[in-house]
């Protein structure tokens, strides 16, 4: 068994042993295994692609959502502004009306007061007249004999009074 002389027995066993291993493994090991590896790699690639697509869709969706949100915000601001304007206007209107009504009421009250005042003055005048008559009557009954000259005097006073 020399170092660099190949032995026939070993060549024979090596050739058929290795070829046997090769054919058994090709048929029962490498074919299913390489197929499974290919399948797995393609499924991983598909999964990665699907994840990429999903991510893009998510990003699109998010952008769309943000757009919608911004629009909604804008709309809300407009509505709020309108409402504010409306309320300010309403308050102003109400204020104006209240001022008008107040003025009207004051006017009315003034008129009433005037009327009342005039009536009261007339009443007072009549009463003063009556009282004066009573007083004069009493005075004259005691002191004066001539009613006529007294009444003329009183009326002269009253006329002067009316002029005030």
């Amino acid at each position: 068994m020399d170092l660099i002389t190949p032995g026939t027995g070993l060549i024979f066993w090596q050739l058929f042993g290795f070829l046997g291993l090769l054919f058994i493994l090709i048929k029962f090991a490498w074919k299913p295994m390489l197929a499974a590896l290919d399948e797995r790699e393609s499924s991983i690639n598909n999964a990665l692609k699907a994840a990429e697509t999903a991510r893009n869709e998510m990003a699109n969706l998010k952008a769309e959502n943000e757009k919608l949100l911004a629009e909604a915000r804008l709309e809300r601001d407009i509505i709020l502004k309108k409402a504010q304007d409306a309320s300010v206007k309403m308050i102003d209107d109400a204020k104006g009306e209240a001022v008008k009504a107040g003025a009207l009421m004051i006017e009315n009250a003034k008129a009433v007061i005037e009327t009342e005042k005039k009536a009261a003055l007339a009443d007072v005048k009549a009463q003063v007249a009556a009282l004066s008559l009573d007083i004069t009557d009493k005075l004259l009954r005691k002191n004066l004999s001539d009613d006529k000259s007294q009444k003329e005097l009183v009326d002269g006073f009253l006329k002067e009074l009316k002029l005030n």
Partner: peptide, 19 residues
Amino acid sequence: EFSITKNVVMLFIVLIVVG
């Protein structure tokens, strides 16, 4: 000669392990 020598036995062991 087709003897099962030491290297042939080793060959079988390797074939079995790998297989």
